[in-house]
Amino acid sequence: MTDQEIYYGIAKKDNKTFQFLYNEHIGMIISLVQKNSGHKDDAMDLFQEGMIALWTNIKKEKFLLNKDIKISSYLYALCRNIWISKLRKAKNTKPIETLSNIESPIDGLDEMEENYNKINQLTGYLEKLNHSCQQLLKLFYYQKKSLKDIAAKMNFTEKTAKNNKYRCMKSLRALYEV
């Protein structure tokens, strides 16, 4: 796949693109994790978070195609930074020299990580909403279902679906403002 196809595929949350990137890069992510206080099982989570970080920045128009740097390099660098943050948060006592002294080699990487962290923080608020609100918001904004379909699925009228959607967003805002 070309970088442009990968870029477009990530933006569309295309499973074939994710599978391609997984096949190509999971090996080096396992290596990164294993050499730095982690286990193979952590690599999958890290790969997943790296993908979300890339996707977030594509959607926010903060990550644009760059002729000189491959997307795989961004993915690896983001995974590495996310892993460093995770180790720091876990107050890991083991030395992490292989990671800690390395400056980010790619311009804009810090901002990309910041955007990812911000979206992650907002996801945390989403998880505090009641199940019905979470379901409704995901159906509308992630699955792109119409209010009519959501109403049928959740057993209420279309108008109620619309009102509930904004009530749920209001609750999300309230959690954010606390």
Partner: peptide, 23 residues
Amino acid sequence: SILAIEADGMRNQLQDLFSKESI
């Protein structure tokens, strides 16, 4: 917030996709 909702859905999508995988 809309991005966060989508990201959460995408996290589930990736988990589903790779739960059958060879990790």
